[in-house]
Write a protein that binds this DNA or RNA. Structure first.
Lengths: 143, 143
DNA sequence: GCTTGAGTCTGTAGCGGCTACGGACTTTAC
DNA sequence: GTAAAGTCCGTAGCCGCTACAGACTCAAGC
């Protein structure tokens, strides 16, 4: 199977596949006589593994670990579980940070909306200290 | 004011300040006789503006636009409003994507927890097609 | 057999937003 | 006077790709 077919079958972009090979995430596939990469179904499955891992937000290093855990059935399932839980915690933290951002942004936008006057509350929030147009719970906000 | 003081006063890391200068986000400050950067309060305010913009998740290019809008009071407040709304939509989309990830991950983790058996459902979810251990609403999931 | 176009090859550079050096200089503290 | 800390500049690295350039190979049509 050629690289373009492997790309279509795995959901990875063609250039991304070459990149994964370069960084050692997937093994180098066989080559045809003329030097073209020749992928097996097993190769494609590995690529799909990586692709699904990325969809779940795992880093390439995490996926590297997951692949190792997957390759060696003697290794413990609880390591996989631990890795996934750490990753989940990280995702939750990112969601929290973004939610905070969104909330703050919504507040300053709401105050600005419709205001054609010279003083823009959004710019004001960026200019002035301590979010003084809002109520910031963080004591570090006030200087 | 020296760069380390400007860093402390603005909340930007010292090396980050030099970076912002290099990419033209902030103007080059005055220099002392010996070539040290010498920041004014206006410089620090600009840095704080950038720092707060980053806290709200704006990209440096967005902040560049906001600075321009801020510098020229003749420009319309509604441009600021529009920029902020686009950014807010983007944040909401990122939250949504992360929430989807977290949900899926929670599902496979829940099925795996406590399982010391050889077949790990987390690895299974990564290996096998179409999230067959879950219920995926996306028709593209099934091949 | 020959041409054309599409696919593939390698290597390198770029993105964003920093961060971290190395080696030279200056300032500060004792 | 000397040692330590701060600053300077330039460059390279991080992640996870993506996009070239310039050389090749392959498949289809004539």
């Amino acid at each position: 199977m050629k690289i373009s077919e492997a790309a279509a079958a795995s959901g990875c972009h063609l250039e991304t596949i070459r990149y994964y090979e370069r960084v050692g995430l997937i093994p180098s596939p066989n080559r045809t006589g003329s030097g073209y990469r020749d992928y097996t179904l097993a190769d494609v499955e590995r690529l799909r593994f990586v692709s699904r891992g990325r969809e779940l937000g795992f880093s390439l290093e995490e996926i590297r670990s997951l692949l190792r855990l997957n390759d060696d059935p003697k290794l413990s399932c609880s390591d996989v579980d631990a890795l996934a839980r750490v990753h989940l915690t990280d995702i939750h933290q990112r969601i929290e940070a973004l939610t905070r951002m969104a909330g703050e942004l919504e507040r300053v936008i709401a105050q600005c909306a419709g205001g054609e006057r010279g003083t823009c509350t959004i710019l004001g929030a960026l200019r002035h200290t301590g979010h003084d147009v809002t109520s910031c719970a963080d004591p570090g906000c006030r200087p």
